[in-house]
Simulated assay, not measured.
Amino acid sequence: MALNQPHISRALPSLVATPRTAESEPNSSSMARQHNGAYRRMSGPVAEAAPIDRIARLPEVLLITGLGRTTLLKMVGEGRFPAPLHLSPRVRGWRLSAVLAYIEAREKESRDAS
């Protein structure tokens, strides 16, 4: 059952956008080509990029270390675990390298003690 509806462009001519042509505005693919070309000129080989030292939030740090929340925060307060970075007024995180260095130090202490 086909409904005969009036053309919206006739009823509301001010609300219908005029079609854009290639000359009036660049499309997204041409803009992407321009951007990618500029990016290739600016960037060097991938091998020169420094490794990223990720920030780990509390749940991930707890999972990596195997410690409980209360124990970990108590150790931070006592200075036995690296202090978190203050990323914003309510967000804290640890550099993954600091957490891994803590684990390696504990492993070394464990080997030296035995």
Score class of each variant (00 low, 15 high):
106 R>G: 09
84 P>I: 15
9 S>F: 06
1 M>G: 04
85 L>F: 11
14 S>V: 00
87 L>H: 02
8 I>V: 04
93 G>T: 12
11 A>H: 10
65 T>L: 14
89 P>H: 04
30 S>P: 00
109 E>K: 13
8 I>N: 07
14 S>C: 03
80 R>A: 10
92 R>W: 07
83 A>L: 05
26 P>C: 15
13 P>T: 11
29 S>K: 15
58 L>F: 09
83 A>Q: 15
11 A>D: 03
107 E>T: 07
13 P>K: 14
81 F>M: 01
59 P>T: 14
66 G>T: 00
54 R>S: 03
1 M>W: 03
20 R>H: 05
114 S>D: 12
28 S>W: 11
68 G>T: 05
55 I>A: 05
12 L>Y: 06
54 R>Y: 06
95 R>V: 13
62 L>E: 02
92 R>G: 04
94 W>E: 04
46 V>C: 04
34 Q>L: 15
47 A>H: 01
31 M>Q: 09
97 S>G: 06
23 E>V: 00
66 G>L: 06
69 R>S: 06
54 R>L: 01
2 A>W: 14
67 L>M: 06
101 A>T: 06
41 R>P: 02
87 L>I: 14
46 V>H: 00
55 I>D: 03
41 R>I: 05
25 E>Y: 08
85 L>T: 08
40 R>E: 13
36 N>T: 01
73 L>V: 07
3 L>C: 06
109 E>Q: 11
45 P>C: 07
94 W>K: 09
82 P>F: 10
54 R>T: 08
18 T>K: 12
33 R>A: 12
42 M>K: 15
75 M>C: 12
105 A>M: 12
10 R>F: 09
89 P>L: 09
55 I>W: 02
22 A>L: 09
44 G>C: 05
96 L>T: 15
83 A>T: 01
111 R>G: 09
110 S>E: 10
74 K>M: 08
76 V>W: 05
104 E>Y: 02
4 N>G: 10
73 L>G: 04
26 P>R: 11
36 N>D: 12
86 H>N: 13
48 E>N: 14
91 V>H: 08
37 G>T: 11
108 K>Y: 03
72 L>N: 00
24 S>P: 06
6 P>L: 05
86 H>G: 07
35 H>T: 11
110 S>L: 08
71 T>I: 04
43 S>H: 10
21 T>I: 01
20 R>E: 03
40 R>Q: 05
113 A>L: 07
21 T>P: 06
101 A>V: 00
46 V>A: 01
99 V>S: 02
31 M>C: 12
93 G>W: 13
15 L>W: 05
76 V>N: 07
82 P>D: 02
58 L>W: 07
87 L>R: 03
53 D>N: 13
102 Y>T: 00
83 A>I: 04
47 A>S: 05
81 F>S: 04
103 I>W: 01
9 S>P: 00
26 P>E: 09
100 L>G: 00
108 K>C: 01
10 R>M: 04
31 M>G: 04
33 R>H: 12
35 H>N: 06
31 M>T: 14
23 E>F: 07
82 P>V: 03
50 A>K: 15
101 A>R: 13
93 G>P: 07
5 Q>T: 05
71 T>Q: 12
